[in-house]
Design a binder for these strands. Sequence first.
DNA 1: CTAAAGCCTGCAACCGGTTGCATGTCAATG
DNA 2: CATTGACATGCAACCGGTTGCAGGCTTTAG
Lengths: 332, 332
Amino acid sequence: MVSEQKQKLTIKQVAEAAGVARSSVSRAFTRPEMLSPETVRRVLDAAEQLGYVPNQTARALSTGRHGNVALIVPDIANPFFPPLIRAAQMEADRSNFCVFLGNSDEDPKQEDKLVGRFVGQVEGLILASSRLSDERIRAHAAQRPLVLINRDVDGIPRVLIDSGSGVREAVAHLAELGHQHIVYVAGPATSWSNKQRRFAARKSAERLGLKVDIVAAIVPSYDAGREAVAAITATGATAAIAFDDLTAQGILAGLADRNISVPGQFGVVGCDDVLGAATYPSLTTVSNRSVEAGKAALSLLLELLQSQSPRDIRYVLDTHLVVRNTTVGHKE
Amino acid sequence: MVSEQKQKLTIKQVAEAAGVARSSVSRAFTRPEMLSPETVRRVLDAAEQLGYVPNQTARALSTGRHGNVALIVPDIANPFFPPLIRAAQMEADRSNFCVFLGNSDEDPKQEDKLVGRFVGQVEGLILASSRLSDERIRAHAAQRPLVLINRDVDGIPRVLIDSGSGVREAVAHLAELGHQHIVYVAGPATSWSNKQRRFAARKSAERLGLKVDIVAAIVPSYDAGREAVAAITATGATAAIAFDDLTAQGILAGLADRNISVPGQFGVVGCDDVLGAATYPSLTTVSNRSVEAGKAALSLLLELLQSQSPRDIRYVLDTHLVVRNTTVGHKE
DNA sequence: CTAAAGCCTGCAACCGGTTGCATGTCAATG
DNA sequence: CATTGACATGCAACCGGTTGCAGGCTTTAG
């Protein structure tokens, strides 16, 4: 029976109950092979009986291992992240790690502040789509093992979702459909993914002889996409590739406001495939590997914690175009 | 200049640099009013110059305050939770608290395990839509301040989103439209919200003289909703109220598969308003107060940590029906 | 001018574990 | 039978702060 004590259970009471030294109790938990099986059993029994559970904080203080990691994302509410967070969290769980979650709100200052708050209590951190400067990232990485997701900084272990491949497929797809002038609706300037997508769009459009314009949406959101439509139509393009699905969804709404039919008069492609087929028309988009990315980043971090090998790791996941109904007509 | 030292900075070095005792350094940070302004400045300068930052773990060990709270949800990827998590996290942030995030995966065992893992490192916990038994919740609440979201256990501080009010409005709305037989598509059996919604649906349907059937979807998800459609149509009802928007969205898909038009032949109402107007037709649903709930729960918890007053708090947020196009025709 | 009252600051114990080293026991070995 | 070594356990220092208490110095009151 676990008695409802006032939380006063320390290693000392267990030691007394089992008739051994405090150190033996400690070892019974952490290195039982050092003790005789008989002693281990006696200690464990006493602990069980008292309802003792080792104090994680005290342990962390003397060993330096907290069993915690931190994960910082720009916006939890952006549907790209929850599956990633979930995957990371479950992976951490398998190794009995706890994860701190931070929301930087797309703000480098806030992100910096969060890192500072977390760093003293974790063994390592993961920054997803970090908005920090390379310099700050390097500074933090010097303090603690650090893994990046969707951010490419030399020498820092990173997991990258290569949306370039999917975007190239998207451009080719649009070209095949006869579009000759497209627009890329950009996301946050500090976003690595955005740079990558913009570059891929421009590059492959040029190669295929398409004209391409860039329109900025700054913050990736439904509203930003909706507002960007004025600028988009002003370019005279006949199709848009948006930084992400949320933006694309906003664009769809903006086009509907103007009675421009999709895909008839205008084609739209998203990125990240976070909406499933839930939009109307269902969104053609670039597939997402966020679950794998979250899982990979976490296990990479744990691996780094084990072997202090500071190898330069760059793990890339490629993507593909998922064709739905915002580029090609349905039911025709 | 912050030198790139090996993390060896302790209170001791600062004490030496400033020419004071360790205790004075400690006080300079925690209770400057106890020291002469001159000393405080000297210590802070030295600390600044060395790049010293107090060790949170050591501090937690002696004070018992970790500055951490834990938040456990059944499924991060369920769009109901991210805004709630985000709100909670930002509220914690305002008080310099760090938040551990746990994903119970809808599994009581897992939830229990997570609580156990977190409890040693946090000052308090928040369980959102807990799947634990009342008994377990009480046991945990006895150890640490604990706030529930969408779970009503006597004596445990709780924040409840009263979807009952919105569901009643939904039933009235359907009755007004002429529906005489509706079905409630249920969610997880252990979910308080589910019980509440089912009860409200049944009760107000009876009062208005509608026939009501219950169909189970068990796990709230798109797929579950889609699969439930067979059972739904089998009842002969002409409208459904789903446990949540995800389920409702699945139902829309299932109905489309069967070429049943919405809202013409069948009416659908969701709950939680997590999809905005993104479905097609846009979903009539019950509004959600998850952001407020997250924020309220966190600040309630922090408040409890301050004043050890074990009052019985029950904070209720009411909801309303948001009428869109899955119940009444659009463009007519 | 002396005593009482503050105000600062340092000492040392403490939070609850972990771990290097020393000690003691017992069996294997020469 | 004495020596060596393996093994099990205890001692005490340490992780990096916090805090009750006491002492020294200055200020205020008598």
